[in-house]
């Protein structure tokens, strides 16, 4: 998901281009943060500082917004981000066993990133795919009707 780490100069340039394209109105903040998050894998301090200058917003405001929303991260994430749906329909169709298997396979707890930076394990709010629960998303790939036995095979698909 995340591309290689960018240098400070590149980050500043990216932020400037984004503000140019979106405009500097406050309403554009969340769309811009989305793009930074997609580009870097997370929203770095460097990016917040530059954004603060270009949008004329206090960095505290930007930070407060970036930390409020679950899909924006201010921490670096692994190369592959696993999002497991933790909502009720997936829970009652056996999601808990899949979640336990995932944690065991990866040796990670919720919210953690593996030491080799390969995986970040997250839970997500309902993805609206409840007809095929339990559901998990790895990067942009969606897996439905997941059973604990399928977990190792699914993880093997990722480098």
């Amino acid at each position: 998901m995340a591309t290689e780490v960018k240098e400070g100069q590149d980050i500043r340039k990216m932020v400037r281009t984004l503000v140019q394209n979106h405009g500097d109105e406050k309403a554009e903040l969340i769309p811009i943060l989305h793009e930074i998050n997609r580009e870097l894998g997370y929203i770095s301090d460097e990016a917040i500082k530059e954004l603060s200058k270009k949008m004329n917003l206090p960095s505290s405001h930007i930070y407060s917004v970036a930390t409020f929303y679950r899909m924006l991260s201010t921490e670096p994430r692994g190369r592959h981000v696993i999002q497991f749906c933790e909502s009720a329909p997936c829970h009652v169709t056996g999601g808990r066993l899949v979640w336990q298997k995932l944690q065991r396979e990866l040796g990670l707890e919720k919210g953690e990133t593996s030491q080799d930076d390969k995986w970040t394990l997250l839970t997500t709010s309902c993805l609206g795919l409840c007809g095929v629960g339990p559901v998990m998303v790895i990067d942009n790939d969606i897996y439905g009707n997941v059973t604990p036995e399928q977990v190792p095979g699914i993880l093997e698909n990722y480098e």
């Binding site: 109105e25 406050k26 309403a27 554009e28 903040l29 969340i30 769309p31 943060l33 989305h34 407060s64 917004v65 409020f68 929303y69 679950r70 899909m71 924006l72 997500t124 709010s125």
Partner: peptide, 24 residues
């Protein structure tokens, strides 16, 4: 306009705060 993962933004006043570029 796209949200960013906050359940409470389905509440109308939170939704409007989010469109304006605030915490929802």
């Amino acid at each position: 306009r796209m949200g960013a993962g906050a359940f409470v933004c389905g509440e109308e006043t939170a939704l409007m705060a989010s469109i304006e570029g605030h915490r929802g």
